[in-house]
Design a protein around this nucleic acid. Sequence first.
DNA 1: GATTATATTAAACACTGTTTAATAAAAAGG
DNA 2: CCTTTTTATTAAACAGTGTTTAATATAATC
Lengths: 187, 187
Amino acid sequence: MRAAILQSARVLLTHNGIEHLSIRKVAQQIDYSPAIVYHYFNNKEEIIDALLEEDYEKIVEVVKTTAEYYSKKDFKNGIVAYIRLVTDMGAFYKNVMISDLPRILQRTSVLHKGAAQERPALEALCSDLRVCPAFANQSDADIELAAQIIWSTLFGLATRIIIEDVDKDQKERLAEQAAELILKMFR
Amino acid sequence: MRAAILQSARVLLTHNGIEHLSIRKVAQQIDYSPAIVYHYFNNKEEIIDALLEEDYEKIVEVVKTTAEYYSKKDFKNGIVAYIRLVTDMGAFYKNVMISDLPRILQRTSVLHKGAAQERPALEALCSDLRVCPAFANQSDADIELAAQIIWSTLFGLATRIIIEDVDKDQKERLAEQAAELILKMFR
DNA sequence: GATTATATTAAACACTGTTTAATAAAAAGG
DNA sequence: CCTTTTTATTAAACAGTGTTTAATATAATC
């Protein structure tokens, strides 16, 4: 039942957008009364949180994929792959990270969850920076700052690509040039 | 009357957040019936659009301030000032650019308006890049790509600072290091 | 002063999230 | 097998939302 509710909610979320995701529609789609939802969830917020949880797991997969490139010191393709994967995944970046930022802003629990999920990626980035000549003799704090800035660049680029609906060709070009420019920071 | 409605809406938006901005509350606050709103606006969307319009004008001021630094070729302080100004202005970045991104995503008119407002800033950035040695012999398209990436970096950084509620000290450090890293791209 | 245009509202419609109390179904215990 | 207890489900109501309609009051114009 819980799974059916979540699945119905996901369909409404991805097809009609978050503003059309209503508990009554969720219930109608699975042929139950609206009140049933409150037997499996405390409120609408919890349903969205559950969907968020699923999406966060997806982005961890993306991070793993890019981490493979980084471990081979192929930073450029790592960055390009990150932009490609992230802008292609409808769920997290489009419906959650962007469409639902207001909720994330307000509900610190979800935010911290997200930060915790991002943490491994940031730390992987830090250890990559540490072996770069440009950051050889810098403190851990400085390296983490640098990692955060790089992360911000990728986040901002991905967000803009999605918002402005950049086409595939320009997306590739943006990603590649971004990768080259970011690598310049390390020299 | 129109102004009174907008002012009431602004108060509710900034104090209670966009999810508590309701036409009935707007009307109640100015001691009128809810129906009056529909004599001056077609729908709730138009009220928010009007508030957005005001906010876009504010960000143009920010761009003008940073442009002064750029014209003196003081890129570092320009970047630092941008981050400082943008993360300090509650209205645009917090309530609009972030809290209301879903709306911006859906309503292309507002998006295009925003893009048009950003345009002068982007072009100013392009002309700054053109005089940099690193971009001397590159095409206009490549320079615009670079400008977009730099813009993305600043957007992403500002968004993260606001979302994660970074304190003033670390904000300054982030901004300064971001500025230095961005400048490295130009060499 | 009569007429036209503008401003304002009460009331209704169709939604929304959520709660409550009642009922149906299933599980557990004797 | 029957009773009791727990779980699942719902109809109905509450309070809120955006919006429309038709009626009324006010202001402007002729």
